[in-house]
Amino acid sequence: MKADERSFSPTLRANLVFMLNKATEESNRQMAVVTGPHGFSIKQYGLLLLLEAEGPQAQIVLSEKVGLDRTTVMTTVDRLEKQGLVERRPDANDRRKNCVTLTEAGQRMVNQNAAQLQAAQDELFSELTKAEREQLHQLLNKLA
Rank of each mutant, 00 (worst) to 15 (best):
Q121Y: 01
M19V: 06
E52F: 01
V33K: 15
D122L: 05
T71P: 07
E104H: 08
D94F: 08
E87W: 03
A53T: 15
K130A: 08
E81F: 02
T103I: 15
A131C: 14
L62Q: 04
A119D: 12
T103Q: 12
L20R: 09
T75M: 10
A119M: 04
D78E: 13
R96H: 14
R89K: 07
P37I: 13
V33Q: 14
T103C: 14
R70P: 00
K130L: 11
E64N: 10
S126R: 14
T101G: 05
D94R: 15
K43A: 11
K43L: 06
I60T: 11
Q138C: 03
Q44V: 11
T129P: 10
D78V: 07
M109Y: 04
E64W: 05
G39F: 14
V33Y: 07
S27C: 11
A119T: 13
A120E: 09
K97D: 03
M109G: 09
S63G: 11
L140F: 08
G84H: 08
E81D: 03
E64F: 05
V86G: 10
E132R: 09
L49S: 15
A3R: 11
Q112F: 15
M31Q: 15
E64S: 11
A114N: 00
K43H: 05
L80R: 02
L139Y: 13
E127M: 12
T101F: 13
L143F: 08
L117Q: 00
T101K: 07
